[in-house]
Amino acid sequence: MNSATTRQSPIGPYPRAAIATGLLVLLLAFSFSGMRAEVWTALLPFFEWMETTWFGYVGKTWGGAFATIQAGHLVSLGVLGGAVLFSDGRLLGLYSSLPLRDVIDGSHQVFKWALAVVVFTGVFMVCGVAVKVYYLPVFWYKMLTLTVGILFAFYVRKPLVDRDLSGVSPLVIKLTAIASIMVWFTVAATGRWIGFS
C-alpha cells in the first residue's frame, strides 16, 4: 500500500525527501543571493516589535526570569540531544540488545516534545534581546542550522526510519544517523556561540 502510493508520486519514490532537498537548495540559493540583504533589512521592524512584547518585557526586566528560561532551554536541548544520540546510536549498531523499532519510535516522541520546549524557550529568549541578536551573524547561522535540522529530522530521517529497515542499505542508515548527530551538534554549538558573541 505504502510502496504503491510512493510510486504514484510525480516526484519519485521519496517525495518528502525530495521536497526537503528542494527546500534546502532554495535556502542555500537564498543565502548567497542579493535577496538575503533585502529580507534581512525588512525583518528589523519585526525584531524591534519582539522586544515590545510581554516576553520581551519580562526577558529585559528580570534577569532571573531570563536565566531560568535559559536553563529550561539548555535542559530541553540536552534531552533533545540525548534522544538524538540514543536513537542514532541504535541505528549505528550500538545498544543492539534493545528493540530497534521501540527505540526509534520512543526517542522520536521525546525528541518532538524537547524540540517544542527548545523552540518555545528560544522564542522567549530572542524576545529579550531581539535587536542584539538581529545583528549577530551567528544567530542567523543557528536559525539556518535549526531549520536544516527540523527539515532533516521530519522529512529525511523520519520517512527513512519508518520504512522496513531490513530493506534499506546499512550504509544509508549509518550515514543518516551520522548526519543527524552532526546537524544537531551544530545547532547546539552555534547556540553556545551566540552566548560568546
Partner: peptide, 19 residues
C-alpha cells in the same frame, strides 16, 4: 544529562514505555 533524563523519564513511565 540528556541521557540521564531519558533514563529518569523511562523510570517514571513518561518515555520509551516499550523498552
Amino acid at each position: 544529562l540528556g541521557i540521564l533524563f531519558l533514563i529518569d523519564m523511562r523510570m517514571l513511565g513518561w518515555a520509551l514505555p516499550n523498552v
